[in-house]
């Protein structure tokens, strides 16, 4: 039977190579070996995704590679996460709601941020794309989220973020708001009253964790 370190390495490698079959097999091997599934996620699958994030920031891999890795990540999570939940030991750093704003259907960036948040132990409720203000507010209230993440790719749709912000401030007190997307930048995020901005998915996850720690 493979030892723990070897299983973690297999999980990490499977994610980095984007191999769903190996990720599932390694996750099943972890279960068979009695490895703590929470540790298998963190030290195996999440570690692989974190390494991909580092490679992306160094421009040594690109979005297609990240997407393929995320498929392997979710395949492995499909085996391990139900066990963590069943054990009642699931640890989470916070709860986030995420979505692409009204009029915008570009969701690759949002999907990558969602995945990196999950990798970092944040429970994420994904509202999808073309989401209006009321849905963001209702979902954030219903899930008692700590963090609301908004994405826009177009100059036309980024205006929605600016428009939504006053209502978020009054109706979602205490909720940290993060924004991102190609036309946005830190300056606009600050001007519009957002608590955080991420230039890419890896940075967004770092900012999210920091916001949750200081909440």
């Amino acid at each position: 039977m493979a030892d723990e370190a070897e299983i973690f390495s297999q999980l990490k490698q499977a994610v980095m190579e984007g191999d769903e079959d190996v990720a599932v097999a390694a996750a099943q091997a972890a279960v068979a070996a009695g490895v703590d599934p929470q540790r298998a996620i963190i030290e195996g699958l999440a570690a692989g995704m974190a390494e991909m994030g580092r490679l992306y920031e160094r421009e040594e891999c690109y979005v297609p590679e990240l997407l393929v890795s995320s498929e392997a990540l979710y395949a492995g999570l499909g085996v391990l996460r139900p066990l963590v939940i069943a054990s009642g030991k699931a640890e989470k750093k916070g709860v986030a709601v995420i979505g692409v704003v009204q009029g915008d259907i570009h969701d690759i960036g949002k999907n990558l941020v969602k995945m990196m948040l999950e990798v970092n132990g944040i429970e994420v409720h994904d509202l999808g794309r073309d989401v209006d203000m009321e849905r963001f507010i209702t979902a954030t209230q219903e899930t008692q989220a700590d963090l609301l993440c908004l994405s826009a790719l177009m100059t036309t749709t980024m205006i929605a973020i600016k428009d939504y912000m006053p209502a978020f401030k009054t109706q979602l007190p205490g909720v940290k708001i993060m924004v991102g997307g190609a036309p946005l930048n830190q300056q606009l995020a600050d001007e519009w009253g957002a608590d955080g901005y991420g230039e890419n998915a890896v940075e967004a996850a770092r900012v999210a964790v920091r916001l949750l720690e200081t909440k």
């Binding site: 100059t155 036309t156 749709t157």
Partner: peptide, 11 residues
């Protein structure tokens, strides 16, 4: 793009 915030055709 007839709806609010839309600026070009959407797939």
């Amino acid at each position: 793009p007839y709806r609010k915030y839309t600026g070009a055709p959407l797939m």
